[in-house]
Amino acid sequence: MKRLAAGLLSAISSAALIAADGQAVAEELLPFEIHGDAVPKALGGLSGDAQRGKQIILDRRKGNCLICHTFPIEDEPFQGAIGPPMSGVARRLSEGQIRLRMIDQSRINPKTAMPPYYRTKGLADVAPEYEGRPALSAQEIEDVVAYLATLNG
């Protein structure tokens, strides 16, 4: 039931991205609370799906995470070496800590090269097709968090 509700919510927020004339319109971000270096509660109370999260991190038009990070995924040559390796990330960070780093790593490290995946404000010269939209939806953030939480090896 919870999954169904989450799916429904996701569908509604996706639909809101495209107006009738095909122009992208602003999407209201769901509120979240930061405690220390973490966002302990899931965005909108959504539950993440680890399998979907894995697809999102691989998708070059979505997370495209392998461009900077190495993941314990076979059959993916040429993984990035910019950010820290994701192997064992769940042992180093709590879900809440991972969530804030996904939402906007610059809140922890102002000089970070990691893009903010759930932020629409304070960005300069965003391409019109991405204006007012976060890089990932709330559901996609939760899916990725769920996947990363499985990397405890």
Binding site: A113, V126, A135
Partner: peptide, 16 residues
């Protein structure tokens, strides 16, 4: 910094 990914030219082509 610019764009949805909030990166400057320098972050990649200087620092990295």
């Amino acid at each position: 910094r610019q764009g949805q990914l909030n990166l400057s030219c320098a972050q990649c082509h200087e620092a990295l």
